[in-house]
Design a protein around this nucleic acid. Sequence first.
DNA 1: CGGGATCCATACGGATACTG
DNA 2: CAGTATCCGTATGGATCCCG
Lengths: 119, 119
Amino acid sequence: MIGTNAVAEHKREIMAVHDAMDVLNGKWKISILSSICYYNKRRFSDILNDVKGISNRMLSKELKELEINKLVTRTVLDTQPVTVQYELTKYGLSLKTIINNLADWGIEHRKIITGKQGE
Amino acid sequence: MIGTNAVAEHKREIMAVHDAMDVLNGKWKISILSSICYYNKRRFSDILNDVKGISNRMLSKELKELEINKLVTRTVLDTQPVTVQYELTKYGLSLKTIINNLADWGIEHRKIITGKQGE
DNA sequence: CGGGATCCATACGGATACTG
DNA sequence: CAGTATCCGTATGGATCCCG
């Protein structure tokens, strides 16, 4: 009976989505990743500026988690004063498709909510 | 200078990602959507079962938000006792690509974290 | 500049009980 | 079955100050 296998497959997919969201949890991670992603390399204060509304405390915390999960690397540059550069790992780059899709969807979504508000 | 335009484009994309995440906020929405998505139609208690860990209170709250944002529709079936069916709207279906990508990524991710834990 | 430490409000979210 | 209401702990996250 193929129906049973289809259900098992669905369970797997739903779990996989859950796994993914586990790493990308919180309000900010995806936005942070997209900032780094679009610029390839990005400094702390730049990301702070890109991601509207985030505080430095949150950014610091989220970046640390992303680093632990091997999605970004952190490089301290020997400048005066210190500069820190964040970069997506190869693994982090595998999220690029998702980020692009989200960006596309977000652009469409904005059209919809600003366009036909009263509907 | 094309660099300036590229930067403006990046800002737009980052904002778009932010917009998208605004609708998909919270711990559960994506998982809920994927449950409904994979089954096309899905009942409250089924989703409750699919999405591991969610409470009925949260599920109810999240579904309501998704309905407000026109991502899902809610249909009360005239059964005994009452059955409620959730379905993705056409608009909600536009998230299917993202959900599939997340599922794919989640499957890869699980391999990585279970495979080379000690690295 | 890139954070860490502390303080504090409130949003999130679980457990339980209740209802139509 | 599909929620709602209440209670309550915890996590989230802002503001501010501090440091190398």
